[in-house]
């Protein structure tokens, strides 16, 4: 009796679903996929719903990973996403102020590290990108980066049996289109979570700061935390941190997006996680060491109408504070993230 009822229920539910699907919008078929979950570290704020309409699956993640490392997304085949976003540099470009793009060109901003993007509302140094799925369109089409158009990339993907199989496994039958490609890339980049540094281990009671790191942490909390808020080490705001205008680039940051003069020279507050491997620093990579960055806050602040109010007088550091702060920042390096095989070249 019980079995018959359950069979009946299953039948009815399936039948209703079938009828409903006939009148609702077409969606991709995820029936043969393996669901994945975004890992939310303990004590962190709730992530943004960046996977709305893009259910996380192992198949989607693996497809995104393959796309991320594939140079065929660029015009001449040389520039994958990973060519400027290197895992050992927390997915920034190691030791380059500007990255290299198509035809021996430079980018115009320093490539940021990619991690914890599900806690980031707007992307790019100027916040011009409003959703993780549409971000890849920017480097892919920029003439000085991957220099390609999306249609050409899709043609290449459609001609490749391996991609046809992977797209089918991730999204069901149907043509390979830009939406599927962008959703898959978002599944890869959106699940790059870095939360296992020494700092995190200390917070979890698994490790201890040495006295210098501990002193550095106190300095950090007093002088840096205002903008680089724990546990993400950014408050995701846009601020003018007193850098003189780069006269070659004439980059006014967020004002380009909002058109508002009050946003002149404002740039994203970057996360300090993994900061010891993401040099050089600032939107134009003008500082090659953390020591230079701290010196900027100590003595280099340029006054101006949009300068952040917390920086009007600069930030005072003694020599000891400066060096202990750098040691503390070193504890934000997440070695297991930098070496995580799941995020490496497939």
């Amino acid at each position: 009796m019980k079995t018959r009822i359950s069979i009946w229920i299953v039948f009815m539910v399936a039948f209703s679903a079938f009828l409903l699907s006939a009148v609702t919008k077409e969606v991709y078929n995820y029936s043969s996929t393996t669901p994945l979950k975004l890992e939310v570290p303990k004590g962190w704020p709730k992530p943004l719903n960046i996977f709305a309409g893009n259910p996380l699956t192992e198949e989607g993640f693996q497809l995104g990973r393959k796309l991320f490392y594939d140079g065929r997304l660029s015009k001449d085949g040389n520039f994958s996403c990973a060519s400027c976003h290197q895992q050992f540099a927390a997915f920034a470009t190691y030791d380059h102020d500007f990255s290299h793009g198509f035809n021996d060109q430079f980018t115009t901003r320093n490539a940021p590290g990619l991690f914890n993007l599900a806690w980031t509302r707007l992307y790019h140094w100027d916040g011009g990108i409003n959703h993780i799925e549409v971000q890849p369109l920017s480097p892919l089409t920029a003439p000085n980066e991957m220099a390609e158009n999306v249609d050409s990339v899709l043609q290449r993907l459609r001609a490749d049996a391996e991609y046809r199989r992977m797209f089918r496994e991730a999204f069901g039958k149907g043509d390979i289109n830009s939406q599927k490609m962008l959703k898959a890339l978002a599944q890869f980049t959106g699940t790059l979570v870095s939360a296992n540094s020494k700092y995190d281990k200390v917070k979890r009671g698994e490790d201890q700061f040495n006295p210098s790191e501990l002193h550095g942490y106190e300095v950090f909390k007093e002088k840096c935390e205002h903008c680089h808020k724990e546990p993400l080490f950014t408050d995701n705001s846009f601020r003018n941190n007193g850098l003189p205008l780069n006269t070659y680039l004439k980059d006014y940051g967020r004002m380009r997006i909002t058109g508002n003069p009050e946003d002149s020279l404002k740039f994203r507050v970057p996360s300090l996680r993994n900061v010891s491997v993401t040099q050089p620093y600032m939107h134009d990579g003008r500082f090659y060491s953390l020591g230079q960055v701290i010196e900027h806050y100590r003595t280099g602040i340029q006054q101006g109408p949009t300068l952040d109010s917390s920086l009007r007088k600069g930030i005072q550091f003694t020599k000891l504070e400066k060096y202990d702060l750098i040691l503390f920042l070193g504890t934000l390096k997440d070695t297991s993230f930098l070496n995580d095989k799941r995020f490496s070249h497939p």
Binding site: N54, G128, N130, I132
Partner: peptide, 24 residues
Amino acid sequence: HNVSGAQTGALDPTKDMFWTWNSG
């Protein structure tokens, strides 16, 4: 639909009607 990520059909970014540097 300007803030909801990758779209398809008439709204597909390959239609060359989507800003890549300032989403929308």
